[in-house]
Amino acid sequence: MTQEGWTRKDLIGIEDLSVPEIQLILDTAESFKEVSERPIKKVPTLRGKTVMNLFFEPSTRTRSSFEIAEKRLSADSLNFSSSTSSLSKGESLVDTALNLQAMAPDLIVIRHGHPGVPHMLAERIPAGVINAGDGAHEHPTQALLDAMTILQHKSQLEGLNVSIVGDIEHSRVVRSNIHLLNKMGAEVTLAGPRTMMPVEVEKLGVKAVYTLDEAIKGADVIMILRVQLERQSRMAFPSTREYFNLFGLTRERLKRAKRGVIIMHPGPMNRGVEIASDVADGPYSVILEQVANGVAVRMAVLYLLAGAFQEAA
């Protein structure tokens, strides 16, 4: 394994990455996948490195995934979580950053409700920063694990039709996926209620449609997004029942899908809202593979950034 070709201190978003950088992460993840299949799932690669996981938003899935990745790489991890936007009451983010830096971590994994926070942190501290989701902006490791999962079923991303369905406006998963899929040559179609489609989204190089049938037709991959019930303060739709009627993915509707279609969901799922149970657990679903690949992708990112840090130091 080599860290050659990786020079970044941080992973803030897919938007900044080049195609070779994306490829490098995916290739590295592929080689780490093997580690997770061993009886003793641990390599000494990051021994002596300290990784801080800062979660300013509740997240079980992403946080556990990073923690497992860190443990399998033998890094020392520290976890901080807080449901407000600062770790200590009244403390500014800048002060938090300076305090953390005083503990000299090598890497910081951060999830925050406000877009731009990982960027802000990365500018101020020498540790490498990994964005684990910033508001509705980016969630780069999710897009990477999605790509890895697709590539286990399809020979290449180029030329694939990928439809992403749901609450586009509030989704960081969508934005990172759009950037990654566009860079790799896939065709992206977004679908969702008009009230959840951000303005001028076509300028990101995607097509927007407003029925589920249009999204299903011809798609090689269908990604269903979580309806963020807790974020619907803006009168976006009247009820989860109406949502399910318009955009809920059911087995019936999937009959019109292309052969070999795969169904993805970044989790956690609202069964019966955006996806029917028989689809989530059905033969096209690759949702559990996504979870497994999440660990490999995060190991790859931690490994590459730790190497970049070493060279910079």
Binding site: P115, H137, V199, E200, L204
Partner: peptide, 10 residues
Amino acid sequence: EGEWSTRLGL
């Protein structure tokens, strides 16, 4: 509200 708010998720 426009292309850039959409891109940045703000």
